[in-house]
Every structure is written in structure tokens, then in C-alpha cells.
Design a protein around this nucleic acid. Structure first.
Lengths: 109, 109
DNA sequence: CGTGTAAGGAATTCTGACACG
DNA sequence: CGTGTAAGGAATTCTGACACG
């Protein structure tokens, strides 16, 4: 649900194209997966498939690595951002719930 | 320019994934290219790369083919639609030009 | 015309490992 | 820790062609 299933999140890109798009080596791309920074899917036969979102994250990772940031630290950054995103979503949901309650909530029998 | 360079139009999908996505055979996908219904790009080594736009067009083609429409007729349909799109763009440009002229066009010296 | 298939070769991708630092 | 590389195998993709209808 949400804005998923959009082009940006569909896992359709092979590692060779990701290599072209990011300038990273296959070794690096696989290693960042091993460190849980990205999560490609697999074809039936086992080839990795990435989304545009993954490609963009990889570019960010490459930038951080150039600045000497370790994969562990990058991982923490990603977690932090994800948590903030979830928090915002919760707030939004709460506000929506509140509005719905105000209008339809306390209906007399 | 335009809405190009968006995810939808980037040629990054291999023929194997396109096969999965469309349910067509590689033979069919290559044949529709031969008939000029789609225009994949190539990697340096010669593998075809498709966009999400291509995938959607292929699904349309598959639907038409099921209804017995020939590739020639499909080609004409595509041309017609493209021409209409261009015409609309021309109209939009003309309108814009007109507006700009009305405001800034006939400036005295 | 539209599609299947077998053929042979070239390029891709995968995993586990050794290397260096 | 992060990345390169050689190794061997499996899967992918390509082209040109023959087949059928």
C-alpha cells in the first residue's frame, strides 16, 4: 500500500545496470547488501533485482563512504530516517483518526 | 526535457524481466521490436534494455494481438496517438506564446 | 504474418574463498 | 572493515535460420 508499487519501488534492475547507474563495483553492491544497507529481490534463478529506490540509496551510500563513513554508521542513519518517517506517518494517522472521531465518533445510539 | 528522464522512461530492464512482467515470450518481444512497435536501448555488450513505458506498451500490444489486430495496424494506432500528442503540445506552446506576447510582446522600444 | 525452436557463442551473475590492510 | 580478484558453474541473451501456416 501507500506509494509503493510505483515505478520507483519495483525491483526490476539487474546488478550490471546498477553498476552502470551508480559507478560502484559488483563487489561493493553485494557487500552493502551483506551489511543490510539495501535489500534487492531475486529472480527465480537467483539473480538480484534492484529498484530505482535502491539505486538512489546506493548513490547516497557511495557519497557517505567517500567521506569515510562506515557501513555501520550509514546503517544507523538509515534506521534513524526510517523511524522518523514512521513517526510522521503515525502522527498523520492519529490526526486523521481524531478528525473522523470528531465528526462521526460519538454518535448517539 | 519534459517528463522524460523520469523513472518511467529510463531503459534499465532486461528482456528476462520484461518477459516476467508481460507474460510474452522473448521471441515475441524481439519481433515487436523488429516491427518497430518498441525501441529498447542496448548495453555496451548488446543486451536489450527496456523502460516501464515499453513494458506498458507491450501489454497493450499483447491485448491488441489477442483481439486479432495485426502488428501493422497496431503500428498505425501508435502513430496516430503520437501525432495527437504532438498536436496537443503544439497547441499548448502556441497558447503560451500568445500569452507571452500579450504581456511582453509588443513592447515599445 | 507471427511465433516456436534448436544451435552455438558470448556475456552475466552467483557463491565461497584468499588477499591486503 | 571494505574491496579486489581468480575460479567454476549455471543462467541469460544474442543472432540467423528453419518450420508451420
Amino acid at each position: 500500500m501507500n506509494s509503493d508499487s510505483s515505478y520507483k519501488n519495483r525491483k526490476v534492475i539487474s546488478i550490471g545496470v546498477v553498476k552502470e547507474l551508480t559507478g560502484l563495483s559488483e563487489r561493493q553492491i553485494r557487500y552493502y547488501e551483506e551489511r543490510n544497507l539495501i535489500f534487492p529481490e531475486r529472480t527465480e534463478k537467483g539473480s538480484r533485482k534492484y529498484s530505482f529506490f535502491d539505486v538512489e540509496r546506493l548513490v547516497e551510500i557511495a557519497n557517505q563512504r567517500e567521506e569515510g563513513v562506515s557501513t555501520d554508521e550509514i546503517r544507523r542513519d538509515i534506521n534513524k530516517r526510517d523511524k522518523e518517517k514512521l513517526k510522521k506517518e503515525d502522527i498523520r494517522k492519529d490526526m486523521l483518526k481524531g478528525q473522523l472521531n470528531a465528526r462521526f465518533g460519538i454518535q448517539k445510539k
